[in-house]
Simulated scan of single mutants.
Amino acid sequence: MELKEIGEFGFIERFSPEFKSLLTKNVFGIGDDCAILPMNDTEDLLVTTDMLIEDIHFLREKITPWQLGYKSVAVNLSDLAAMGATPIGTFLSIAIPPGVDVEYLDELMKGYHAISDRYQTPLLGGDTTKSVKHLAINVCAIGKCPKGQAKLRSGAQAGDVVCVTGSLGDSAGGLQVLLNQLESNEDTYYLLKKHHQPEPRIELGETLVNLNRVHSMMDISDGIASDLKHILKASGKAAKIELNKLPISDQLKRVSQQQNWQPEELAVGGGEDYELLFTLESSLLEPLQRLFLEQFGQTVFPIGVIEKGEPEIHWVKEGKKVQFGKTGFNHFQ
C-alpha cells in the first residue's frame, strides 16, 4: 500500500491511538491544531509545529526570501489562533542546501523578524543543518490561553452555524497565478500576496476563545472540504454547506472569469487561506458580526449549519443538493 492511498491523516490514524495511553492528566495531543499542556492555575500552554519544504510548499524562484520567512511563521501562528491562543515564542529549524547564499538567508530572517515583531513573538532557539538538495524550514510555535478554554475541533453541536472569518480561495488563486505566469495587475498582485504573505487571525482567535457559545474551531490550511471534515469527525456530526454563501473576493472572481477558473473549487479545495473555521450557537451570530465590525472592521461569514448524522458534508447551491468532488489538499496525491 502506498501512502497516497491513505493520505497524511490516514497515516496519523495508524499510530496515534497507541500514544494516547502515554498522555498524562489534562494533556491533549494529536487531533487538534495544537497540543495542550497545563502551565499554571490560570493558563494552558499550546504547542504546534509545521514544516515548509521547497517544491512542495513553495517554489524558491517564485517567492522572495523575505516572504518565505514571513510565511513560515504565519502558518504556525495560525495554528495558535485556531485554538484561541496568544503567541509566546517560536523555534526555527532550517536545512540549507548548497547554493543558498548568506544574503538570501539574511532576507529570510528579516521576513521572519517582521511578523515576529508584529505579534511580539520572539525567536527562542532552534537548529541549523545542511540539506543535500532542498531548502526545508520547520517552525515550532508556543502560545497560551485561559485554562480549559482552548477551542477544540470536537465541540460542534447540531444546529450550530458554520462560519469563516474571511474570503476563501485567494491563496489557491495566487498559486495559479504563479503556475500560469499570469500578467501582473492589481488583482493578480492581491492573490499573490494572499498566497505568499498570509495573515494569522490572532486577534480574532483571542476574541472567539472567550465566547462559550463558539463550540469548535480550527484554521483553514487544506481547504474547507478537508478541514471541516476534521471537525465533523471529531464531533460526530454532519454539515450542510451552501456554496453560494462562500465568501469569494472580487479579485478572485474577476481573475477566474478571465482565466475560466471555477472560483468555488478554489474556495473549497485550494487551501492555505489561514482564515478561521468555527461553529457557534445560531443566536450568537448577529451579535458576533456586530462585535467584529466594531472591533476589527470586518464581519464573519455564515456558510452552513451543523446537522445530526454521519461525518460528511452535504453541498447545497441555491437550495438544491449538488455533488461536489473537491476534497481539499492532500500532500501525498
Rank of each mutant, 00 (worst) to 15 (best):
F15T: 05
P17V: 06
P17A: 05
E18P: 00
F19L: 15
F19N: 00
K20Y: 11
K20Q: 12
L22C: 00
T24Q: 12
K25C: 01
N26I: 08
N26Y: 12
V27F: 10
F28W: 11
G29F: 05
G31Y: 05
G31H: 04
G31E: 06
D33G: 02
C34K: 01
C34Q: 00
L37K: 01
N40Y: 10
D41R: 11
D41P: 03
E43R: 12
D44S: 09
L45P: 06
T48E: 03
T49R: 06
T49Q: 08
T49S: 14
T49M: 01
D50E: 11
M51R: 12
M51H: 07
I53D: 04
D55Q: 14
D55H: 13
I56Q: 13
H57D: 15
H57R: 10
F58N: 01
L59K: 11
R60L: 15
R60F: 01
E61C: 04
K62H: 11
I63K: 03
W66R: 10
Q67Y: 03
L68Q: 03
L68N: 00
G69D: 05
A74C: 02
N76Q: 10
N76L: 06
D79G: 02
A81W: 02
M83T: 14
A85F: 05
T86Y: 08
P87K: 05
P87Y: 08
G89M: 05
G89H: 03
G89S: 09
G89C: 06
L92W: 05
I94Q: 05
I94V: 13
I94P: 00
I94Y: 04
P97D: 07
P98W: 08
P98T: 08
V100D: 02
V102E: 15
V102P: 00
E103F: 14
Y104E: 13
D106A: 11
E107Y: 09
L108P: 04
G111A: 08
G111E: 07
G111T: 02
G111R: 01
H113K: 14
S116H: 04
D117R: 13
D117S: 14
R118C: 00
Y119R: 08
Q120D: 15
T121Y: 03
T121M: 08
L123D: 05
L124I: 09
G126D: 07
G126R: 03
G126T: 04
G126K: 03
D127P: 00
T128H: 02
T129C: 14
K130P: 00
S131Q: 09
V132S: 15
V132L: 13
I137L: 10
